[in-house]
Design a protein around this nucleic acid. Structure first.
Lengths: 228, 228
DNA sequence: GTCTATAGTGCGATAGAC
DNA sequence: GTCTATCGCACTATAGAC
């Protein structure tokens, strides 16, 4: 039975309550606020508002006054949830990278053979970015604004995904189902196609292309190139 | 004789002197400065510095103090070359879109048959973005910060390129050399691959992949999918 | 044609009341 | 746990000297 977006979207590990609840529990000691349900509710609200505003005008252009208005929290209250605007920026990045690597690892690790693994890897990327399009867009567009010391997180994330695909292709070549091609460039092209899905959201929405259609198309496109 | 990057890079229409010289001539009446060679020299310097700084920290984060330092012009002097920071932003966008459409039209219009036209269209995109990587990066990353009324320029540019490729593919299908596939999605994927070249410049530079290698790879990749 | 000095604005962050 | 009021700073833009 093939994985579909319908099924994937019900995974409890990708709900905001789960992600930010976890974040709160792990960092409890840093919060002045003690009431968990209040904290998580506001964390989610701040997080969503930040992604929305960053998507519209960019994170740097977003002011804390904008964020205050969007969340219905005063500027003073906001500072109970993050120590500085810069730190809010990092929190969103780090939680994003963690989410991506965790979810992908969960779904991929047991998959076999390479052909099936390739399909699942592509689908999970598309599905996850379909559930959190603004978050993915943010991670892509704002990465360059990370401080030098945090940039390695982002490069690590880019190369993690790429390695996932180079490994699958290598396996496929050894198994004899894939032709001998430039593995690194092929993996890069797969990434580029996955990213187009959330970078050009407006285009695909307008054309009414679903996540499953897009994933199928990419799989077909890639297979026509690498299959023997 | 196939076009190479070596040849293309000698085209006089893509030099900064030509582009900004033209811009100055067309807008002479708006400049307080009358000396053309001084004006063009400084326009090029301002333009290059803006692209460099925008690439590093983003256009919004770049201050006119940064720009002043990078160009060795005072803030007062800068304002002889553009009326406001916002207007500088638009000037770079508009000249960029013009350059791209002009160059591409020049090289493409006489090409035939579809298979050859496809090759040339891909090469010109890669070559032009190889000559001006920072400019292309800027156009891509900063587009969303255009005011609503100027956003149509950018969408127009995106769709212009896409139409170029859908037209070529349609021709190829009619000529019988291309299979019947999803034309719009195929064109989108071609665009995504072309864009990866300047969006991930650091990666390809590190891996020592040349513009010609990259172009050849994309052509091979796409042909394996659409050729009958 | 370019400079320095500064006006006016809006930002991130915090103190202290409730 | 959240609010209002405000501080100090850095920004864009301009006026007037050279």
């Amino acid at each position: 039975m093939e994985l579909t977006f319908e099924q994937f979207s019900k995974d409890p590990n990708i709900t905001m309550e789960y992600i930010w609840g976890n974040y709160f529990k792990k960092n409890r000691i840093f919060f002045k606020i003690k009431n968990e349900s209040v904290a998580v509710k506001n964390l989610i609200s701040i997080f969503n508002a930040t992604l929305k505003l960053s998507n519209e005008i960019g994170f740097q252009a977003m002011t804390l006054r904008n964020l205050s208005k969007e969340t219905d929290l005063s500027m003073g209250a906001l500072y109970n949830y993050f120590p500085s605007k810069e730190e809010l920026f990092k929190i969103i990045h780090i939680n994003g990278f963690n989410l991506i690597t965790n979810i992908i690892n969960n779904y991929i690790k047991t998959e076999t053979p390479p052909e099936q693994k390739m399909k699942t890897a592509i689908k999970i990327h598309i599905y996850l970015s379909e559930v959190e399009p603004l978050w993915f867009y943010f991670l892509y567009m704002e990465t360059k604004n990370l401080k030098r010391e945090d940039r390695k997180l982002s490069i690590g994330s880019e190369l993690f995904t790429e390695k996932l695909f180079t490994d699958i292709i290598s396996d496929g070549i050894q198994t004899g189902i894939y032709a001998e091609r430039n593995i690194l460039l092929t993996a890069s092209m797969i990434k580029a196609m996955l990213q187009d899905w959330y970078l050009k959201r407006w285009k695909y929405t307008k054309r009414k292309i679903s996540a499953d259609e897009y994933a199928s198309f990419i799989i077909e496109f890639i297979e026509s190139y690498i299959k023997i």
